[in-house]
Design a protein around this nucleic acid. Structure first.
Lengths: 210, 210
DNA sequence: ATGATAAATGAAACTCTTTCATGTTTCTTG
DNA sequence: CAAGAAACATGAAAGAGTTTCATTTATCAT
């Protein structure tokens, strides 16, 4: 969470009604994203969709970007949670490669089960170009919550930030490509490519620094 | 070129004055991009910057997106032209890996020499998310003008469209990451990573299909 | 019940993009 | 060179979004 409450003008909901409103806004974002893509997520549209007024959005989100980011965080959190459980139950003695393949497969599966994830991921790429993406940001992220723990465990220490960033960007792009592929045949082929590239990146990470 | 002149309402400049205007607009896009990023490239801003009026932009470009695309094409064309020359003079008998490394190095160098390329590349990613990027589009592109010829030459035939798309997206992302790295040390390290991943992709491309 | 705090409203100010009726420059041709 | 045609350029205005904020309404605590 970027600012639990800093000098923002946004607020954390305190009453039940407000929590419901906030949740409804995020649900509307996902719904519209799935049906019509992230471009259709306008503040007026989300307000209309939920029956709230535009002003209400700005009570809980600093701006449109923050709204999309929060929705994205929602999908990522759910995805990572699933993979995290599996990660925890991995045999301690399991071969790195097998473990990586297993986690990757789980990740792709979980991502597919979140229909709003692909459009939101694309929107994030548009909103936060690589140039500004600080890689190790505080948000819930694949980098921080999935890659970093995995690397820490198998490399015996936390990865260098640049390595983490590289792998996160690589994985993000490949997953994006994967989720967007319409043909099952293309997806199957892409699984192989993604696996190959992530294993290569993993090997280099393990070799590079302790 | 997408439409030399179809049913668009845009026009190819015929008089010298018009050619100058069009060129000035594109130059302004690059200038503003370099200084303040692609977000600062608004139609009003570019008009003000060149002393032209907003309407004039729409005489030569269908919309803001087309304006950015044209500027991007400009940088890519110049980059690819340099690499292309080198590609032509490669020894016919040169080992694929050596050739690939050579072209990649040239490409990175040429891209660095085009300051507007990085911000415009990022803008293109935002404007045309992977989902819509038809991969083998008609535009001047790294995919069509650099990757495809290279693969055609060393694989003995044109690559499958999905392969080309995969490699183009991969290369684009990695180059983006590279161009954005501030530290020379980071860049040097990234060169190694990019090379490793592109060589892997190349091997799989050569192995996969004729 | 009532004052205090939280939540919600929606008109209005802004910023951008895009269109188009109108005016100006350049070309062409007799 | 004059005058019509074709090419260029203009900028006000329409339209779509985002964001603010003074005001109103609902909920909580006592």
């Amino acid at each position: 969470m970027r600012s639990p409450n800093g000098s923002d003008r946004t607020v954390e909901p305190r009453q039940a009604r407000a929590r419901a409103t906030r949740a409804a806004l995020l649900a509307a974002v996902e719904r519209v994203c799935v049906r019509e893509g992230a471009d259709a997520v306008t503040t007026t549209r989300i307000a209309a969709e939920t029956g709230a007024s535009v002003g209400t959005i700005y009570r809980y989100f600093a701006d449109r970007e923050a709204l999309l980011l929060a929705a994205y965080d929602g999908t990522v959190t759910r995805i990572v949670r699933r993979c995290g459980q599996a990660l925890d139950t991995l045999d301690a003695g399991l071969d790195v490669h097998r473990a990586a393949r297993r986690v990757l497969a789980l990740y792709l599966e979980a991502a597919e089960a979140e229909p709003a994830h692909a459009p939101l991921l694309a929107a994030m790429r548009a909103l936060r170009p690589i140039a500004q993406d600080q890689g190790g940001n505080d948000e819930v992220s694949v980098a921080g919550d999935l890659l970093a723990p995995f690397l820490a465990r198998y490399a015996g220490g936390p990865p260098a930030p640049e390595r983490l960033r590289f792998m996160a960007v690589l994985l993000g792009t490949l997953v994006d490509l994967y989720l967007v592929a319409p043909e099952p045949a293309d997806r199957a082929a892409l699984r192989g490519e993604i696996e190959a590239h992530m294993l290569l990146a993993l090997e280099r990470a393990l070799a590079g620094d302790g």
